[in-house]
Write a protein that binds this DNA or RNA. Structure first.
Lengths: 200, 200, 200, 200
DNA sequence: AATGAATGAGGGTTCATTCAT
DNA sequence: TATGAATGAACCCTCATTCAT
C-alpha cells in the first residue's frame, strides 16, 4: 500500500512545478490553483508549506542561488586578473546550466521581480558577480561588457531554442551541448575586451 | 473657455500612458483602472477606443514598429557587407532611442508576449533585422552575436540607469548621451566579430 | 447622388431589425450596439428615434397589435356563438401569419415581458381575445382550452421548423402553408370542445 | 451550538434559489450576486461549487430531468397503444408537478436556452417523450397534437395563476389540485385525437 | 500533512444612456 | 438626422488567502 506521490518531498515538488510554470507563463499568470492541480493537491495544501505565493518564489531563489554565492565567495578570495574574469564566466555558465529555467524566469519577469523582495537579492548577486569580473574603478563601458557577457550565457540558450523551431535557422544548428559551447565562447569573447583600449 | 483635457488625442494618450505603465509594472499587473485613472477618464472610455486590453498593446506596437520596418526595408535593398551590418545596428539604435520603454517592455514581459498575438509580430521583426546583419548561411555563433549585439543597445540603457542609482557605480558614469555612445560602441564591437574566425 | 439607406424610414427599420434580433436572441441578450451595427448607424442614432430600449419594444408592439385590436373590436359587436369563436381563431391566425416573430418573442421572453410595461398591454389583448371565445361565466377548463387553442396557432409553427431540421421528422412534412392549415385545424379542433360536456 | 446555515447542503441550496430566480426574472436578468445574497454568501462562494453560471443551470437540469428520463425508459419497453400514450401524459404530469418552475423556466427562456448547451439536452428529452406518444410514421398533425398536449400540462398552471390574480376570472376557479386535474383532462383530450381521422 | 468551504478585492468587459456638436 | 466621446453601474469570473477540521 504505497502512497500515490513520492512522499514527504512535497515542498520540493512545489518548487519544481512552480518554477516550471513561472518560467513558462510568468509569475502573475501562474495561479496557485494551477500549481496545486499539477501536483494533485489542493490550493490550501500549498499554504501548509509556504506562507504566501511570494514565499514560493523566494524558496525557488534560495535553492537556486547557492552556486552563484559559491562563485562569489570563491572569487572574493582571488586577486583580480583576466584569468579570474574568465573563470567567473565559466563558473557562472557551469552553475546555470541546470538552472536555466530560473535564469529565464529572471530575465523575463523583471517588472514582477522589481516589485518583489526577492528581486533585490538576485540583482545583488548578479551585481557582485559582474563586479568580480572588473578591475578597480571600472569604466561604464566595462560594466556593460561584463553584464552582457554573463547575459549571453543564458540568452544564447533561448536563441538556440528559437532557431531549433525555425526551419531555415535550424540548418547546421549544433546540438544543445554544442550550443552551450558557443554561448560560452561568445561570452568569453565579449569579456575579453574588458579593461582593454579599443584595438584600433 | 478651454476644455479640461487636450482633447481628441485621447487615443494617443491612452497608448502613451499604457506603455509607460506596462513598462514599469508589467502588462499583467497594470490594470485598466490604473490607465484610466491616470488619464482622468473611466475604464469604459478605454473601451471606446480599444476593443480589449490586448488591443491597446497592439496599438502600442503598431505605432512603435515603424522605424524597425523602415530599417528592414532599407536593408533588404542593400548587398550584404560588414558596413551594412554596422549601419543596421546604428539605425536600430537611432530608431529605438525614443522607443526605449517599448523595448524594455518587450525584454521584460516575454511570458506575456509569448501568449499574445502581438508577440509573434515583434519577434519576426527582430529576426528579420538580425538576418540582415548576417551573410548567407550564417553559423549559429554568428546568429548569437547578431542578437546580442542588438540587445546590447537596449540593455546598456538599463544598466546605465541601475548604475545611476548606485552610489559606488555612479562614480565616473557618463551622462545619458554618453551612455548611448558606449552602448553603440559595444554593440558594434560585438557585431564586428561576425563572420570572422577566432582572432587566435 | 442617392443616400445609402432607403431613407427616412429609419424608425421603421429599427423596429424591424430589433424585432428580428429580439426574437432570435432574446430581449436581454440583444444589445443596442447589435441593432445599430446591423443598421449601419451609431447607437446614439437609435436614441434620436426612441427614448429607451424599452421604447423600441413598445414601438414594436404598437405596430404589431393593430390586427388583434381589430379582431377584438369586431368580436365585441357580435353575439357569442361557436361560429364567432371559430372566426376569432381564424382571424387571429390570419393576423399573426405575418407577425410570427412577435408572437414567438412574446412566448419566449415572458420573464422580461412581465417586468416591462408593454407586457401588461399585450397580455390584456390576449386575455380579451380569449374572452370572446367563451360564453358567459366560462369554466376554468374552457379558459384553458381557449388559451391553448390560440397558442397552438403559433407553437405549431415552431414545431414545424424544428421538424424541418430533423431528418427523421421531416419525412412527409407539409410545406409552410400546409403547416399553417394543420395548425389552424388543430386549434379549431381544440376550441371545438369549449362549452361542451365531456363527450363521454 | 447550531451553525447559522443548514450546512453542507450549500450546493443544493444554490440550485434551489437559482431555479427560483431564473424562473421568476429569467436567466439573463438573474445575477450571481442576487443568488449569493439570498443565500447569505459571497458570489465567490458560488464559484466554489460551480464553474460558471451556465453550470448552475446545467446542475438544475440534471437534478430535474430524472423523472422524464424514467418515463422515457419505461415507455420504450412498451408497445405503442393509445393507452400507452395516455400513460405517458399522466407520468409526465406527475413528474412535472413538483418541477413546475423548471418547466416554466424552459418555456419562458427559449432564446437563452437555445444558446446554452443544456438546451439541446432538454429538447431531446421532450422530443423523445412526444415520440412515444405517436405510432409509427406519425403525421405532422399528430406531432403537433402530442406536443401541445404535453405543453398543456404546464401552461394550464400558468393560466390558473393568472386567473387567480384576476377578480373576474377567479370566480369559480378550482383550487390548485383541481386545476391540475383540469390540465390533465384537457391534455388527454387533445392527445385523444392523435392517429384518428377528423370525427367529421 | 492536507482538505473543504468560503471570502474580499479586484480583474476585464459590456451595457444602456447622455450630450455637445 | 445623426455622430463621437464618454459615463456609471453592473456583470461574470479569478485570485490569493484564511481557517476550522
Amino acid at each position: 500500500m504505497t502512497t500515490q506521490t513520492p512522499r514527504g518531498d512535497t515542498r520540493a515538488r512545489i518548487l519544481d512545478i512552480a518554477l516550471e510554470l513561472f518560467a513558462e507563463h510568468g509569475y502573475e499568470k501562474t495561479s496557485l490553483r494551477e500549481i496545486a492541480d499539477r501536483l494533485g493537491v489542493t490550493k490550501a495544501a500549498l499554504y501548509y508549506h509556504f506562507r504566501t505565493k511570494e514565499d514560493i518564489l523566494a524558496g525557488i531563489v534560495d535553492t537556486m542561488s547557492a552556486p552563484i554565492e559559491e562563485a562569489i565567495a570563491w572569487g572574493r578570495e582571488q586577486p583580480y586578473s583576466p584569468a579570474l574574469r574568465d573563470e567567473i564566466v565559466r563558473r557562472f555558465a557551469d552553475g546555470m546550466q541546470s538552472r536555466q529555467p530560473l535564469l529565464r524566469f529572471f530575465h523575463e519577469n523583471q517588472p514582477t521581480i522589481r516589485e518583489l523582495k526577492v528581486g533585490g537579492r538576485f540583482k545583488d548577486l548578479m551585481f557582485a558577480l559582474t563586479r568580480l569580473m572588473l578591475g578597480p574603478e571600472p569604466t561604464f563601458e566595462d560594466r556593460v561588457r561584463a553584464s552582457i557577457s554573463l547575459m549571453t550565457v543564458n540568452v544564447a540558450q533561448f536563441i538556440g531554442q528559437a532557431c531549433a523551431e525555425d526551419p531555415e535557422a535550424s540548418v547546421g544548428l549544433p546540438d544543445p551541448d554544442g550550443r552551450r559551447d558557443v554561448a560560452l565562447r561568445v561570452a568569453l569573447d565579449i569579456a575579453d575586451r574588458i579593461g582593454r583600449p579599443d584595438p584600433l
